Computed example of a mutant assay.
Amino acid sequence: MMMCQNTARNVEIKAKIHDLNAVIEKVADVCKMEMEVIHQCDTFFKTENGRLKLREFKDGGELIYYDRPDVDGPKLSSYSKSSVTDTTSLKSVLQMALGVKGLVKKKRMLWHYNQTRIHIDEVEGLGNFLELEVVLNDNQTPEDGTRAAQELLDILGIPVSDLLSGSYLDYLNISKPA
């Protein structure tokens, strides 16, 4: 069974982390809350437009479609999610219909700061990353989200040189030998 959610928007930034413990300490200090640890396995499916992934958790998952440019720094992402209780059969159907593009396994540490979801991801085979998702409400512009994300990057001391474009899957595919 799936439960649909309306399309939403966020401004997203990804950055490479060089000192995991230092960044965790800074984020914890800024957020003043306990983090949530989530183990995720994302299966990406072949699509003509945007990206489609089935995110599996310990209990259930989400089917997520999103579209965003692959540029360094802040980028506007439009997405839609649907809750899934039977990830195994849905994955099988999508694999048969679309084909699998790749798999990303990660341990995600999650905090909330105002309207921003702060993730520290330990991505299997790739390393450690910071991801900021500034969830926009209907009356906010992408520029509002970019400002909020930049403020957090400054507070956390993340240099522009560490910002990334693309998805973890893109980087995993680049690192695989041809």
Rank of each mutant, 00 (worst) to 15 (best):
T87Q: 14
R68F: 00
G73D: 03
G60I: 12
D19P: 03
L94Q: 06
K81S: 10
D121N: 02
S77I: 08
Y113M: 02
D170G: 00
D70V: 05
I64Q: 02
L63W: 01
L172W: 01
Y113H: 12
G60P: 08
Y79D: 05
N10P: 13
N6Y: 08
V27T: 09
Q40H: 01
V104D: 03
Y65D: 00
L54I: 11
T85R: 15
L163V: 04
Y79W: 07
M33P: 00
Y168K: 01
C4P: 13
I158L: 08
D19W: 04
G127D: 03
E124N: 11
F45Y: 15
V123Y: 06
R147Y: 13
D170F: 02
Y113K: 08
H112W: 11
T43G: 03
D70T: 07
T141P: 01
R68H: 04
S77V: 11
Q95F: 00
S78E: 12
E34D: 15
V100T: 11
P142W: 04
A22T: 13
T116K: 04
K46Y: 04
G127F: 05
V37T: 14
I174Q: 15
P142N: 00
N139C: 09
I38N: 09
W111I: 02
L126E: 04
L94S: 02
C31Y: 07
I38L: 13
V71H: 07
G73P: 04
F44Q: 12
K58G: 13
P69M: 12
L156K: 10
I38C: 10
Q150V: 10
Y66W: 12
H112T: 13
E122Q: 12
K105G: 01
N139S: 11
H18P: 00
T43E: 02
N114Y: 11
K75N: 02
D154H: 14
N173S: 14
K26N: 12
E25D: 07
M96A: 14
N49T: 15
I120R: 00
I38W: 04
N21P: 09
G127C: 03
K26P: 08
P69R: 15
M2W: 11
D138Y: 10
G157H: 11
H112Q: 09
D19Y: 08
E131L: 01
S77M: 08
S165Y: 04
D19E: 08
S92W: 13
N49E: 08
